[in-house]
C-alpha cells in the first residue's frame, strides 16, 4: 500500500504542468526513494526524469514497490480540483487499479476525494551514464525562458557556446540572426539571480528550441535552472525543488 502526504498540492500540479506537453502516458514508480518518473517524448529526442523524494512527504508509507500507470491529461483534470495550498494525499493498493487523491484545505474543514483510473504502461527505462560535464551553467530560470522564447522567433535551433567569458545563445534563420550573451555574475543580495559558469573546457552545441521552450514550462518549480553540457552528449536541463528535481535531457543536433 502507498500513502504519501504532500503539504502543498501545488508542487505536484507544477510538476505535471512542466512535463505534460512532452510526455502523455507515464508510470509513477514508487519505491523507498520516493515517487519517480522517467519517460521519453514520442520522437525519442528528449527524456524527462523526475523525483519527488520520500523525505518531501509526511508520512511516506510504502509496503512494496509499485508502478502507477497514469495518463497525465487525466491527472491534470483531477489536480485542477485541488487548490495549490491544499494538503494532498496519494493512496494506492499494492496492485492498484486506481489512485486515490485526497485534497484537504489548511483549515481542515474541506476534504475532497477523487479516484483516478490507472493504466498498464509498458515503459522501457534507460540507464543514464554518470557524466562529468564540461560546462555547468546555473542561471535564473525566467532568464533562460525569455532567451528561448525570444530566439525561437528567429530560428528552430539555438547554439549554446560556453566559455570562460560567458555563455552565448545564438541563432540564425530566414529573417536574420540573434544572440544573447550572459556573463558570469554573482548577485549577493539575490543569489537566485546570479549566473554561474563552471567550466573544465569550452563547449559548443546546437539544440532544437522547440524542446527547450517546452522544458521552460518547469520554470514555476524553481527560480534557478542548471544547464550541463559536454560535447556530443545530451544537454541536461535541471530544475531542483526542495526535495526532488525535474531533469530534462535533450539530444543535440548533429552535423551542423
Amino acid at each position: 500500500m502507498l500513502e504519501a502526504r504532500l503539504e502543498q498540492a501545488g508542487v505536484l500540479k507544477k510538476v505535471v504542468d512542466a512535463i505534460r506537453d512532452l510526455v502523455q502516458d507515464i508510470n509513477f514508480d514508487c519505491n523507498d526513494s520516493g515517487i519517480a518518473l522517467q519517460a521519453m517524448d514520442n520522437s525519442h529526442v528528449a527524456l524527462v526524469s523526475m523525483l519527488l523524494k520520500s523525505e518531501g512527504f509526511s508520512p511516506y508509507r510504502l509496503d512494496r514497490n509499485i508502478a502507477l500507470g497514469i495518463n497525465l491529461t487525466s491527472l491534470t483534470k483531477v489536480l485542477r480540483c485541488a487548490q495549490n495550498e491544499d494538503i494532498l494525499t496519494l493512496k494506492a493498493e499494492d496492485t492498484p487499479d486506481t489512485l486515490s487523491l485526497i485534497f484537504e484545505n489548511a483549515e481542515n474543514d474541506r476534504i475532497s476525494e477523487y479516484e483516478l483510473k490507472l493504466m498498464d504502461i509498458d515503459q522501457e527505462h534507460l540507464g543514464i551514464p554518470e557524466t562529468e560535464y564540461a560546462a555547468a551553467i546555473s542561471m535564473p530560470s525566467a532568464e533562460f525562458q525569455r532567451i528561448c522564447r525570444d530566439l525561437i522567433q528567429l530560428s528552430d535551433s539555438v547554439t549554446i557556446e560556453a566559455s570562460k567569458e560567458g555563455v552565448k545563445f545564438s541563432c540564425s534563420g530566414d529573417i536574420g540572426s540573434g544572440s544573447v550573451t550572459l556573463r558570469q555574475q554573482n548577485n549577493v543580495d539575490k543569489p537566485d539571480l546570479s549566473t554561474k559558469i563552471e567550466l573544465t573546457e569550452p563547449v559548443t552545441l546546437t539544440f532544437s528550441l522547440k524542446y527547450l521552450v517546452n522544458f521552460c514550462k518547469a520554470s514555476a518549480l524553481s527560480s534557478v535552472v542548471t544547464l550541463s553540457l559536454s560535447n556530443e552528449v545530451p544537454l541536461l536541463v535541471e530544475y531542483a525543488m526542495g526535495s526532488g528535481f525535474v531533469r530534462f535531457y535533450l539530444a543535440p543536433k548533429i552535423g551542423e
Binding site: 521519453m40 529526442v45 532544437s208
Partner: peptide, 14 residues
C-alpha cells in the same frame, strides 16, 4: 527533423 539526434543512442537500455 533533419540533423536531430535521438536520445536512445546516448543512453543504454536497462
Amino acid at each position: 527533423n533533419p540533423g536531430q539526434g535521438s536520445i536512445n543512442s546516448y543512453f543504454f537500455k536497462k
